[in-house]
Each structure stands twice: as structure tokens, then as C-alpha cells.
Design a protein around this nucleic acid. Structure first.
Lengths: 139, 139
DNA sequence: ATCCTTGCAAATCATTTGCATGATT
DNA sequence: AATCATGCAAATGATTTGCAAGGAT
């Protein structure tokens, strides 16, 4: 279970396991992709008193620890998601705002080419494509 | 010249040509990729009194008009660049922060594949890859 | 008992907006 | 002269931080 990992990693660092930290981590797992504010709302469903600044601090901590990652979709809003799911590419639809995911292998060709021609190593875990999804294109 | 286009487009809309608007547009051309703040600094080199809110308003206007575009690189900072150069892919180095550019044609394979398999139309003018450039990888 | 975490409030930072003054057409 | 644009300052929204009180080990 995820909370076991959390407890363990925290202990290794001499940090403490708290209800807030468990809730924030669960919220990230549940939501898939979420902004700090959305995480805060989700957490509030269970524990209304949790402060937004605690959410920020906890997300930062969880990212440090390696349990979550964040990306910047659309207009600069940071969205957090579980680190285990890191290896994917985001497809963000400008029409409906939906965030879809695809295998990072779609980038194999590009990343090879960029490595060869530019010496640039692409971080395939942090790629987002903006555009229009099938539904929005059809309508 | 660019300012001719600016004057012309403004006139068509019943808007006015001002020194500030010319300066902001020039700054965007000069800087290549720049945040509102960087544009403001550049403009200040010539006209110290220009207000930051004027820069924001002007960038928005220039984007409306179609002379500049903006993208979100790295941690959510919006960067503006000339619309004429829109068709390129950004390579953002996490090491040194440098922003390089490549032809959007590197994405031909991926965008074809996503269109076929997902029905997703990639906006190739707004793609950024994060990673490590040759210099940073070597050191 | 120690010292990490939290909540609260204030501080910051980026961006936006209202309004009176000043500039462009 | 008629409006549009600007500067200024205050408002806003997001995120960060200081600090004292509370909680985990």
C-alpha cells in the first residue's frame, strides 16, 4: 500500500507521518492530475481543517521524496500526479480542457533525433502536447 | 518594417500607435523569448518610465492583433515571442535554463501517429521539451 | 522531552483593474 | 475636441514564510 511506502520513506529521513501527509498523497493518487488547490479541496472532503499552505508544503515534500511529480499544463497551472505514473505524455485539449495520456514511446523517434542532431536529452516524463482532441475536432 | 505593420493593424482597429507599443514590440523581437518582466526591463533601457502594467496590456494587445504569441516554459513563466517565429519547438535545458529551438518537422512522426491512433491534433507551434542540453550533459 | 509539523496571518510575487491625467488621431 | 492609452495605486490571486502552539516519535 502507498501509505506504507510513505511511512517508510519519511522514517528514513527522520520525518514524521501525519494525517495531512497521508491525505495529500491519497488525494494526488485519486485525482490523477491536480493543482494544489484541487488537492486541497479533495483533502478538505475528509479533513476540513487542513490548511492550503500545508498542502503546498506537503506536495513539495512528496516531490522531494520522489512520490509525486509535477508538470505545467496549460496556462502555467502546476499539476501534480503520482511519480509511479511519471512515464507518460500529456495530451491537453484546448477545446474541452481534458488531459489524456499516451505512452512515452511515441517520442522515441523525436528524442533519438534530438539527441543525435542537437545533443539534447529529452525528459520524456514531462512532455505535454496541446491541441484538439477527437471529440472537439468533430464538433 | 515591423512598426509599419503595427501602425497599420492598429489603425484598422481604430487603435493608436504609441511609443510604448512600438517599444514593447521591438523588445519582443530583440529578446526572442521573454517574460513580461524581461520585456519591461528591455523597454526600460530606452524609456525608463514605462509602467509594467502597460507592458502586460500591450503584450495582450499584440497577441490579440496576432503579432506575438506566448508559451509556457518551465515553471509556469509565460514567455512571449514574435508570431512570425511561431512555428518552432522549444528545447528547454533544466541545467542552464537555455531555450533552444528546432524545426517543428521533428514532430511529424509523432503528430501523425497521435492523429491516427488518438484522433488528437497536435498544435506544433506550442511544444516544449524539457531536458538537458549538450553542454550541461557533458559537464 | 525533543524537535518536526501545522495553522494562522502576514509577506511576497505576478498579474489585473479603476480612475484621473495625458497623448494620439 | 474626442477618445484611447498610460501611469499610478490599490485589488486580486497564487504561493511562501515566520512563528507560536500542537503533535509524532
Amino acid at each position: 500500500m502507498a501509505s506504507d511506502t510513505l511511512a517508510q520513506v519519511l522514517r528514513e529521513r527522520g520525518l514524521r507521518l501525519t494525517a495531512q501527509r497521508q491525505l495529500v498523497l491519497e488525494a494526488v493518487y485519486d485525482l490523477g492530475h491536480a493543482t494544489p488547490d484541487q488537492v486541497h479541496c479533495k483533502v478538505a472532503e475528509t479533513a476540513a481543517g487542513v490548511n492550503i499552505s500545508t498542502v503546498y508544503r506537503t506536495l513539495e515534500l512528496l516531490e522531494d521524496i520522489g512520490l509525486v511529480t509535477h508538470t505545467h499544463l496549460s496556462h502555467g497551472a502546476p499539476t501534480y500526479h503520482a511519480a509511479a505514473e511519471e512515464q507518460h505524455v500529456h495530451l491537453v485539449c484546448r477545446g474541452c480542457g481534458r488531459v489524456d495520456e499516451v505512452q512515452p514511446s511515441v517520442l522515441d523517434g523525436v528524442s533519438d533525433q534530438l539527441a543525435r542532431e542537437r545533443g539534447f536529452t529529452v525528459d520524456v516524463g514531462h512532455v505535454s502536447f496541446f491541441g484538439e482532441c477527437r471529440d472537439c475536432a468533430g464538433g
